[in-house]
Simulated scan of single mutants.
Amino acid sequence: MGQRAVREALASGLLSQPWRGVVMRAENALKLVTMAEAALLVIGDPVVLSGPTSLAVHGISAAASTKIHVTVPYGRRIKSKPGLVVHQGYYRPMDVIEIDGLATFPIDLALADFLCDGDRRTAFAALDEAMRGLPPDHVRKLRENVRERLEDRRDRRGIHRASTLLDLATGMAESPPESVLRLVVVEAGFPVPEPQYEITAVDGRVVYRLDMAWPSRRIALEYDGYAAHEERGDRDADRDARMAARGWITIRAVAADLRDPGRLLKELEDAFHLRSG
C-alpha cells in the first residue's frame, strides 16, 4: 500500500495497529486468530501461543481472554506489551503444533501449564470443557497425558494445585459456570458432589437430572444460567416442590453466587446440618 496509504488507513480507522510492526484490518481486531498471528509476527521465532490463548485456539471457550499469551524460550528477553503477555519457559520443538497456521502448544501441555499458573477457576473450567463430550476412555487418556506433562515440568510451582484440579474434573459440567460452582463448593470444604445425578422413576425412567448432588443426604445443587432460566421460575419452583416430596433439598445458584458465594454456602451449610442430625 505504501507508507502514506497505510498512515491514512490507520487515521481513518480502516486499519488497526495493535502493536508496533503489524497492522490489520480494523474489522479483524477482535478475531482471536488474527490477533494471535499478529502477536507471533511481533515477537518473531522462536515463539509459541500458550496459556489461555493456546486453549482458545483449541476451541476452549472458558479460556477466552482479551489478551494474547505467548511463550518464548529462556534467554529471550522480550517484554510484554499492552494486550500481549510474554512468558518465558522451556519447551522442545516437538512440543509445538500448528492450528490454522499458528504455532501453539498441544492441548494437554497447554492445560498443564494453565492449571499451574493460570487463574484457578478459569483453568478448572477449561479442563472440564476439554473433557466434555469425550468418551470415558478419551477422558482417562487426556487426564493421563496432562498428568505426564505436569510430571515433566521443570518449574514445580503450582504442581500440587494443578494435580488437585485434575482429580476434581469430570467433563460432565454443562457449562463453565457449572464447573466453577463445583470448585467453589469443594474448596469451601463440602464433600465432592456427584455431577449430572439422575433421579429415576420406579420403572427406571429418568425423571430429573441434577447439575450436582449429594445423594446420601438428598441435597441437590442447581446452577440457573440467565439465558436458560430467566423465564422458568414457576417451572423450577414446581420441580423443587416435586423433589421435596421425594425428600430432596434443592439449592439454586446464580451467576452472582460465583462472585460472592456467601449466601449459597450458608444455604448448603444449613442443608448439611439438617441432614446430619
Results as ranks from 00 to 15, higher is better:
residue 206 V to R: 11
residue 258 L to F: 02
residue 270 D to E: 15
residue 275 R to L: 01
residue 199 I to G: 12
residue 273 H to T: 13
residue 242 R to Q: 10
residue 222 E to F: 12
residue 142 L to W: 04
residue 259 R to L: 15
residue 148 E to W: 09
residue 126 A to W: 02
residue 236 D to I: 01
residue 163 S to R: 08
residue 166 L to T: 09
residue 211 D to F: 11
residue 65 S to F: 05
residue 4 R to N: 10
residue 69 H to G: 01
residue 4 R to Q: 15
residue 143 R to K: 12
residue 106 P to T: 01
residue 154 R to C: 06
residue 147 R to F: 08
residue 83 G to H: 08
residue 79 K to D: 13
residue 1 M to L: 15
residue 71 T to W: 09
residue 37 E to V: 07
residue 50 S to I: 04
residue 47 V to S: 03
residue 252 R to S: 00
residue 74 Y to W: 14
residue 133 G to F: 06
residue 155 D to C: 06
residue 162 A to C: 11
residue 204 G to W: 14
residue 192 V to M: 07
residue 131 M to L: 13
residue 236 D to T: 05
residue 209 R to Q: 07
residue 29 A to K: 09
residue 40 L to H: 03
residue 247 G to E: 11
residue 116 C to V: 12
residue 41 L to P: 00
residue 175 S to H: 08
residue 93 P to K: 09
residue 51 G to T: 13
residue 196 Q to N: 05
residue 29 A to G: 14
residue 2 G to L: 07
residue 95 D to P: 00
residue 257 D to W: 01
residue 137 D to C: 03
residue 158 G to V: 12
residue 75 G to K: 14
residue 220 A to I: 10
residue 18 P to I: 06
residue 200 T to I: 15
residue 202 V to N: 08
residue 157 R to M: 08
residue 162 A to P: 01
residue 166 L to A: 03
residue 200 T to L: 15
residue 119 D to S: 10
residue 178 E to W: 03
residue 239 R to W: 03
residue 275 R to P: 03
residue 96 V to M: 05
residue 123 A to S: 15
residue 265 L to D: 05
residue 168 L to E: 01
residue 207 V to Y: 04
residue 189 G to D: 00
residue 237 A to S: 13
residue 137 D to H: 13
residue 135 P to Q: 14
residue 238 D to E: 06
residue 147 R to S: 13
residue 264 L to T: 11
residue 48 V to D: 05
residue 42 V to Y: 10
residue 222 E to Q: 09
residue 132 R to V: 03
residue 60 I to K: 07
residue 43 I to W: 00
residue 64 A to W: 15
residue 83 G to Q: 04
residue 136 P to V: 07
residue 36 A to E: 08
residue 220 A to T: 04
residue 74 Y to H: 11
residue 195 P to S: 06
residue 30 L to T: 10
residue 129 E to D: 03
residue 126 A to R: 00
residue 159 I to H: 01
residue 113 D to Y: 09
